[in-house]
């Protein structure tokens, strides 16, 4: 058989040159991400696709730990909406978190993250639900009155049109006033993943300069 292991890739594999051309990543960085992807996607089910349990295991070292925000991020990474994350989805989604990714992409991703019910708006009930979820996660105890006060104050700052929902334009305005809202949308690790993770054995098949 002439088949080589070298050509066996995970389902949804895309050429690093293609992904590098579409994202801020270099070809070498995409290849490094592929090494990470293979580890994540084979940690529980060896099918080369990241299942939600594998995502949770990677984030929390616990496959059964549910978390509202991890669920939302998984769902946004799962672009094809088929319950798993393939390599192309992994790279394209992570690219939004690259320090060199356009700020507008980060703004839109964060907006979609908070738009829990995917209505195209962030609603007050969604904001309160997220605050309560965070309190539950952190085991912080705040009275109902304090939660209402926090949500109210944030809502007054954000819902500048006063129509009871936050649209993308209002979200953009809020973020411009408080840039730290996007702090988690940038992962410094991604700036040069090949140096940050020297354990990855890299043997680039294509020089970055070739693309």
């Amino acid at each position: 058989c002439f088949c080589s292991k070298k050509n066996k890739h995970t389902p949804g594999y895309e050429e690093p040159t293609v992904l590098a051309a579409e994202t801020p990543f270099t070809v070498s960085e995409v290849e490094a991400l592929y090494e990470l992807f293979k580890k994540l996607s084979n940690s529980i089910i060896s099918d080369g696709l990241i299942h939600k349990e594998e995502f949770q295991l990677a984030l929390f070292r616990n496959r059964n730990r549910r978390n509202l925000f991890a669920d939302r991020i998984f769902d946004l990474f799962d672009i094809k909406r088929n319950g798993v994350i393939d390599f192309g989805e992994f790279v394209r989604s992570l690219s939004v978190f690259h320090p060199n990714a356009p700020i507008e992409d980060k703004i839109k991703f964060a907006f979609r993250l908070y738009d829990l019910r995917q209505t195209g708006f962030i609603e007050r009930e969604e904001l309160k639900e997220m605050v309560l979820a965070l309190l539950h996660e952190s085991e912080l105890v705040l009275s109902e009155d304090v939660v209402e006060m926090i949500v109210d104050k944030t809502w007054k700052d954000a819902d500048t049109k006063g129509d009871g929902k936050i649209d993308l334009e209002e979200w953009r305005d809020l973020v411009s006033k408080s840039p730290s809202l996007l702090k988690n949308m940038t992962l410094p690790y991604l700036k040069d993943i090949t140096l940050s993770f020297p354990s990855f054995v890299l043997r680039s098949e294509v020089e970055d300069t070739e693309i």
Binding site: L40, L59, L68, D71, A133, L134, T154, D157, A158, L174
Partner: peptide
């Protein structure tokens, strides 16, 4: 100082911290 609820969420939720994808390897 009052903190924004979104800031509260983004800075405190472990589910929103993707650096763990790399650190836990």
């Amino acid at each position: 100082k009052f903190f924004n609820a979104f800031e509260f969420i983004s800075s405190m939720s472990s589910g929103f911290d993707l650096s763990n994808l790399f650190e836990n390897k």
